[in-house]
């Protein structure tokens, strides 16, 4: 669909300028999208590997915890796990991937974990599951970071793609159509002008003869 435009020279130059801007914008956005997809592929691969690894590990930890729970009463376990050995702290900053601010997290490791409960009444499975989980913590934090980054990237890629498509398939064709219409109209005017001149010249010549 062609937008309603006045077939004037001024409109034509305006449209031509707009078209060149749109083409340049389209190219830039396309490049941005390509780069984001590349970054996204790297992230999502890492994300997938981490996710699979962590899920497997967590399942094993949980099954060990179940074993511990069989050997001990519920209150006892809850009591043993009530007090944290150290509070997990993370350092937060952000980095920019193609102008999207994604979070980066850093776990502040405070050395090895101490078990804060007495060993007399707790089964060994509980100890090992807690220790294994504490070793997994680093990866859990990395997973959070990677997963959030790929989340945000995916959203941005979708948005950019929509923009690229809108420019490529709607805006640019519309402008080209308008430019064509204006040039045709202007040419037509030119031609009719010439014909008018020719005609009047003929009439004048006839009169003089």
């Amino acid at each position: 669909m062609r937008a309603k435009v006045n077939p004037t020279r001024m409109e034509l130059t305006k449209l031509k300028r707009q078209l060149s801007v749109a083409t340049r914008g389209h190219k830039l956005l396309k490049d941005k999208q390509d780069e984001m997809v590349r970054q996204f592929m790297l992230l999502i691969k890492q994300n997938r590997e981490l996710r699979i690894e962590i899920e497997r590990e967590l399942q094993e930890i949980n099954s060990e915890f179940y074993k511990a729970r069989l050997k001990m009463n519920y209150q006892g376990i809850m009591e043993a796990l009530m007090i944290p050995s150290n509070s997990a702290k993370i350092k937060v900053s952000s980095k920019s991937i193609m102008n999207i601010n994604v979070p980066t997290l850093k776990y502040q490791d405070e050395g090895n974990i101490d078990l804060t409960y007495g060993f007399a009444f707790t089964p060994s499975e509980l100890d090992s599951s807690v220790i294994r989980l504490s070793k997994l913590l680093n990866k859990l934090i990395l997973l959070a970071e990677v997963e959030k980054s790929s989340d945000m990237l995916a959203k941005e890629i979708e948005k950019t793609r929509r923009r690229v498509n809108a420019i490529e398939h709607v805006m640019i064709p519309e402008m080209q159509e308008s430019i064509r219409y204006i040039t045709m109209k202007l040419d037509d005017n030119e031609r009719s002008n010439i014909i008018r001149l020719m005609k009047s010249k003929e009439i004048i010549l006839n009169k003089n003869n």
């Binding site: 999502i44 997938r48 899920e55 399942q59 949980n62």
Partner: peptide, 22 residues
Amino acid sequence: PFPIIIPIPEGIDSKGVGLKKI
């Protein structure tokens, strides 16, 4: 950007929610 909310499996088998999100 924050908070980051991510799923983790409970129990001994995973429902695959995390992988589905990926």
